[in-house]
Simulated assay, not measured.
Amino acid sequence: MSTNEKPMSLSDKLMAPGDGLRRWWDRLSRVQKWGFGVIGFGLLALLPLFPPPFLNTPNISFGGTMAQFAMVAIIAIGLNVVVGQTGLLDLGYVGFYAVGAYTVALLTSPNSPWNQLGPTGWFHESWAWLACVPLAMAITALSGLILGTPTLRLRGDYLAIVTLGFGEIIRLLADNLSDITNGPRGLNEVAYPRVGQSERLPDGVFSSGNSMGDANYGTWWFWLGIVMIVIILLLVGNLERSRVGRAWVAVREDEDAAEVMGVNTFKFKLWAFVIGAAIGGLSGALYAGQVQFVAPPTFNIINSMLFLCAVVLGGQGNKLGVVFGAFIIVYLPNRLLGVEFLGINLGDLKYLFFGMALVALMIFRPQGLFPARQQLLAYGKAAREFLRSPEKESAK
């Protein structure tokens, strides 16, 4: 080492693995990225069938854990559009999750006065859940539009307080409107996909009765979630590379400068809010179908903080990073479930572990484990190659 070189600090050492992986990924061509993506998601889909011993969750179904991870990953991608891409601090994102779940439950649960199953309703039992998913996304997007239109002119802490209040209002409405939501008792027997029905599984592979073997109902919900994640990643990725994505980044970096440069900041913030809300509603619909029971305690402020924690841990603005953050948020408590140390169940200390992780992250790596590298120039790679070509010709 030369005398002019400085030794790597602890912060630099923590930064190296995530940044190295990101730089390696950026150097790949689009075809190579697609190839690695297909292989990666294929291996991920096989995890519930062949769980590695070091990853398996001995005290709970690994398939169920992965199904929960898929739902939280979808939430993290939607919240990343709002927080990571646009820079809007949303502390009540769980409210959109609740709206999506209750939309499916209110339309399909026999405990709901708005139940539309059966011969006199709108839906048939075999395809009711599938029909409710786009409805849940549309209603959740509408709720995002209604909330965002009067509030997105606020910034920073003021917007965070408004969104926090929205999440609590949705939970309290679900808890107190007993004539509609059945109050704290919740809505059960929610519709789910009726696929793969047989003599052994009369209700299909997505029913809770499919609880035996590796490909249990959790595994099937995980596979469905993986398909949804891939579709959402493709759509959000195309948005990021478009004029909309560049406007989001401009708003996040400096809203006043973006406004001066002609960006309609309110419009693009509202777009991000509505798109993020729709993705949250999709995850809520998945939750309602998988659990087949929806109740207010699920949609508390603690879960909203956990969703935000997944985005911060993975790296704000990085789609794949927040998916990894969602995996940590879901996997760690399930892995430690039933593990005792000095008579303490480590699974009950998940909030302590997440708090310690966030403190360490803010000190050593505030941009997250896998920070995003934004390219505001739409054809940046082609431009760089064009600028380098005269140098190569002159060298010859």
Score class of each variant (00 low, 15 high):
Leu336Gln: 02
Leu145Tyr: 12
Gln68Gly: 07
Glu199Ile: 11
Leu387Phe: 12
Lys392Met: 13
Asn303Gln: 05
Val244Arg: 05
Pro53His: 07
Thr181Asp: 00
Phe353Glu: 02
Pro150Gln: 03
Pro48Gly: 13
Val311Ile: 13
Asn300Thr: 10
Leu107Glu: 01
Leu44Glu: 06
Pro17Lys: 02
Leu308Thr: 08
Phe69Asn: 03
Arg23Pro: 00
Asn238Trp: 08
Gln68Asp: 07
Val339Phe: 11
Gly37Ile: 03
Ala138Asp: 03
Val260Leu: 13
Ala160Glu: 03
Ile39Leu: 08
Glu393Asn: 06
Phe327Thr: 01
Val244Gln: 09
Lys350Gly: 07
Leu349Val: 07
Val72Gln: 05
Gly183Ala: 05
Leu173Arg: 00
Leu376Glu: 15
Leu55Tyr: 08
Arg171Val: 14
Gly325Asn: 06
Asn318Ser: 08
Ala326Gly: 08
Gly148Ser: 11
Asn334Phe: 10
Ser283Trp: 00
Ala76Trp: 02
Gly186Lys: 01
Asp12Ser: 11
Gly183Ile: 11
Ile75Cys: 15
Ile60Tyr: 11
Glu391Thr: 12
Ile77Val: 15
Thr149Trp: 14
Gly262Gln: 07
Gly183Leu: 03
Asp203Met: 09
Ala136Val: 14
Met212Ile: 13
Asn56Met: 15
Gly289Met: 01
Lys33His: 10
Pro110Gly: 02
Leu224His: 09
Gln197Pro: 03
Tyr93Gln: 13
Trp248Asp: 09
Ala272Cys: 06
Leu152Thr: 06
Asp348Glu: 09
Arg365Lys: 14
Leu349Gln: 10
Val94Asn: 00
Pro371His: 07
Tyr287Asn: 06
Thr298Ala: 13
Val330Met: 08
Ala277Val: 04
Glu385His: 12
Trp24Phe: 10
Gly284Asn: 08
Val38Glu: 15
Gln32Cys: 05
Ile279Pro: 01
Tyr93Asn: 09
Ala128Arg: 09
Ile170Met: 02
Thr149Gln: 11
Phe341Pro: 04
Gly186Phe: 08
Leu14His: 04
Ala395Asp: 08
Phe386Gln: 14
Thr181Arg: 00
Ser126Glu: 14
Gln290Ile: 00
Ser29Val: 04
Arg200Ile: 14
Gly20Leu: 10
Val38Met: 14
Leu89Cys: 03
Ile170Asn: 00
Asn334Arg: 05
Pro17Val: 01
Leu349Cys: 10
Met15Cys: 12
Gly343Thr: 07
Pro48Met: 12
Gly218Glu: 08
Ala98Gln: 15
Phe62Glu: 11
Val330Thr: 11
